[in-house]
């Protein structure tokens, strides 16, 4: 029983427990905390796997940004963020079913692993000291993988813009389309009205405007 063994055991149990908490707790805040715990556990496992940089990123991005974002949204929604009335009752069957499913899967996995007559574990080999270091990953990211890296930044920007665009909706101008049928919407779209409502200013109008402005 080395330190590493213990570390792995603790980290994996923490990750599993956190995951369980995420999906099982009624309050979304608790779920978020569970997610946080899992993330920390996985970060620890990353350390075990010689992925120091990733562990850091995991903590920074997930714990620092994603979970915080979740919490913000939960705060924004207030009490509505929780499960509605009667949801728990409705979901009971599903919960029991899911529990049973998970137990079944666990049993199957255990069966597969233990019953294999000559189950041989594949140990990790010796590790390169450079493996997973910030320098090594940085070399890759700014070297051969620079294009996807830059694309990832683009993706993030697009995501931010998109998130703003989606979240910024104006409920008071929500358009009720004429017909519920998507086909009808396609053929009788609102474009006609738009054409009529926003004609381009004519030359005379422009001139009048300029004159009036002057």
């Amino acid at each position: 029983m080395t330190v590493g063994n213990v570390f792995f055991a603790v980290a994996s149990v923490v990750a599993l427990l956190g995951a369980f908490m995420t999906i099982a707790s009624q309050s979304p805040v608790r779920s978020a905390v569970g997610l946080l715990i899992t993330i920390v556990g996985i970060a620890a496992l990353f350390l075990m796997l010689n992925a120091q940089f990733l562990a850091a990123i995991q903590l920074i991005v997930y714990a620092g940004a994603v979970v915080v974002l979740f919490v913000f949204v939960i705060m924004l929604l207030g009490p509505d963020a929780g499960d509605g009335e009667g949801t728990v009752a409705r979901a009971r069957v599903a919960r029991y079913g899911a529990g049973a499913f998970f137990a079944l899967l666990a049993a199957a996995a255990a069966h597969l692993v233990t019953r294999a007559p000559d189950a041989v574990f594949t140990p990790f080999g010796a590790v390169d000291p450079e493996h997973g270091s910030v320098e090594a990953i940085g070399r890759l990211l700014f070297g051969s993988d620079v294009v996807p890296f830059e694309l990832a930044t683009a993706l993030l920007i697009v995501a931010v813009v998109g998130a703003i665009a989606v979240a910024r909706g104006k409920p008071h101008v929500r358009r009720q389309s004429k017909s519920a049928s998507p086909t009808a919407r396609m053929f009788h779209g609102p474009l006609m009205a738009r054409d009529a409502q926003r004609p381009l200013p004519t030359k005379a109008e422009k001139a009048a405007k300029a004159a009036g402005g002057a």
Binding site: M1, G4, N5, F8, V113, P123, F124
Partner: peptide, 8 residues
């Protein structure tokens, strides 16, 4: 003792 050092 292999806990944490095998892929499985």
């Amino acid at each position: 003792s292999s806990l944490g050092y095998v892929i499985e």
